[in-house]
Design a protein around this nucleic acid. Sequence first.
DNA 1: CGTAATCAGTTGTCGTGTCAACTAATGTGC
DNA 2: GCACATTAGTTGACACGACAACTGATTACG
Lengths: 176, 176
Amino acid sequence: MEDMSEETHWLSTEESAAWVRLVALTELLPGALDAQLLRDAQLTHFEYAALMALAESPDRTMRMTALAARTNATLPRLSHVARRLEERGLIHRFPCPTDRRATNATITEAGMQLIADAAPGHVETVRANVLDALSPEQLGQLYEIAGAVLTRLDPEQRLTATSCQFSEGPAVARAG
Amino acid sequence: MEDMSEETHWLSTEESAAWVRLVALTELLPGALDAQLLRDAQLTHFEYAALMALAESPDRTMRMTALAARTNATLPRLSHVARRLEERGLIHRFPCPTDRRATNATITEAGMQLIADAAPGHVETVRANVLDALSPEQLGQLYEIAGAVLTRLDPEQRLTATSCQFSEGPAVARAG
DNA sequence: CGTAATCAGTTGTCGTGTCAACTAATGTGC
DNA sequence: GCACATTAGTTGACACGACAACTGATTACG
């Protein structure tokens, strides 16, 4: 019963079982992250990630386009989010001196303070919902598996090209 | 340097690396699924999953509340989606005979036809973006890892209590 | 029983993301 | 150098999901 190059290659029992769980995971995890951050810092996980990206950048500043790539956002989405964050005083936007089309965004002191305050609770949520459930071996397996999948989903590695986010002495905690 | 039960236990390098990749995965995968299904069947992945759940149910019928739990939707969300699907003739809603508060939803023949047509492309997308990147060992590891995490995120196993979705002779293909 | 509490579902409002259109600046080719 | 294409970013209109308020039916209880 080989494929005729038109017949669908349906999922095996093992494939289907793993897939169902992965879908459930991707369905539930974002909501859990958003819920905690919204409750404790009035930030979506996306806003938190954007502020983190700025906080970890040289001069705490990034071009809008670079920040959009880093956070997997479209430019219009980032523009809307940036306007709201700026209205809250968490970031500041100013024209790029070298390219007058471009806009730079900087995280403010208030923004640094907010994510510094929010980071511990966020880390705790990550541990409680994910990391604490995994053995050290599984942590490494997850790293490999997610990396393999991201080769397909994110070939240019826009999202994962990052200086470590919470490891060791966190830049945010120091800065706060 | 033990915790004082108030100090944040920051992520290790390994934890941070795995976490960043998992976040990227959960960020990118839903968009990839939605993009293919919207292009080929004008369905979001959520709508597709809801129709699939109906198709696999006895009598192709489910209570709204049960369908909401099965798809991790709030009832208002499902109500809106159901109205749109009904307007497109893909499902049919009618009052439950035994409980006059309740509403039952049935997938129509047109709905069955649509997901039968959409399923091969969807399976192909799942393979191309995820399964083909993993070894058989990794598939099993993913199953275990996602299961462990879901113990935290979905203790009642609402999302994963499912008859296998695409395995073997798929009910949808038979029915279409 | 009859009243209160709960449950099932729908509807309206609002916040957020997507898409298309637009402005403005930079690069390209002849 | 001057059109033309491309790039960076913003804005407005629309679609979808969350939350709250609401209707109507069922259950709990005294």
